[in-house]
Design a protein around this nucleic acid. Sequence first.
DNA 1: GGATTAAAATACCATTTGGTACAAAAATGA
DNA 2: TCATTTTTGTACCAAATGGTATTTTAATCC
Lengths: 186, 186
Amino acid sequence: MNTETVLDVAMSAYWQSDPADVSVNTVCQMASISKPSLYREFGSEDGLKRAVLDSYADKVLSDMFLIIQGGRGLEETLGALIDFASADPRMETGCLFYKMRAGKHRLGPTTRARVEEINSAAQAAYVAFLQSCRDKGEFTTALSVGAGATYLGEQLALAITQRASGEDPARIRQMLTLALSVFTRA
Amino acid sequence: MNTETVLDVAMSAYWQSDPADVSVNTVCQMASISKPSLYREFGSEDGLKRAVLDSYADKVLSDMFLIIQGGRGLEETLGALIDFASADPRMETGCLFYKMRAGKHRLGPTTRARVEEINSAAQAAYVAFLQSCRDKGEFTTALSVGAGATYLGEQLALAITQRASGEDPARIRQMLTLALSVFTRA
DNA sequence: GGATTAAAATACCATTTGGTACAAAAATGA
DNA sequence: TCATTTTTGTACCAAATGGTATTTTAATCC
């Protein structure tokens, strides 16, 4: 049984619907493997989800981090984030990480821990980005860097979550652009 | 068996945790009634949830509608909404309606229909409010009334949802104030 | 009080959940 | 080719889910 294949199948299932709505049984029959095989490889449902999340972070979230850490200016970076959130086809059914975070009380301990880890890393990345913008004199609002980072993160999460519920991408872009306009309009 | 009591118990349970995480069995033993009694009164889980949502709309959401339809000005109304979302003790564990809306794919048909109904009513209320502000010359942004209404609704939902996950109310107020500043700062 | 009717609870149903004991295959070694 | 080891799948487990048939209890009527 190919571990990589199982991870892909599970990720796709969790991502398309919701980690809480996909059972281990379902994953097994979608991947055409037996349940003991899966448990031998991942130990538990929690282990599987954690592995899937790791894989997701590697394949998808990394691209988002690249945008934030690209070293570009405020407007350009915000624009890229808006593009990503409102138009990237991979976010059409939302973000697996945000789905997990939204239902983190339904996750096992190791997956939840990983979710919190990633969340902290994202927050830190937003902070670093905004701080660099402030240093460059692009981010001159009274708003603190920490608060701005939280705000930015939550607005992105909101936008991407809305894509999962089928909202019109153009509308989402409009809303997100409006929300993030607080960074550029003093 | 007191129907009102059962509704209160169920509402409290759904509200405090999440409608998807509270089973019919749990509701029964919390209300100290037998399962057939509950099914005789509400027909199904969907029926119970729908009844609870109706009761919730009557007891809680009505207050939110009162704020919006109070006929007061833009700044004052937004301030009241910010207060409600970030400080009202009843929103400490979030809003039952928003929880249902967030997990509406997990709801039965009648409850889901009611959720959509309430959602439309809320949107309409936001539209009416913003339109009246525009008529009074308080809302002069390029933003359309419809888009503004959607934005307002989503930002409130976000803020209240964050309260359910234990975020610091002061932080939430700050974020929401920032988000809604787009209405008053041109 | 005794018969009838309305209310409630016990005890069950099928299905699904996460998880595993154990037997059947398949690959490896000599 | 035969024995050993590793891999895989069948068949099961207990618990919980939403929902119900049937029996017991309680109230009503005469």
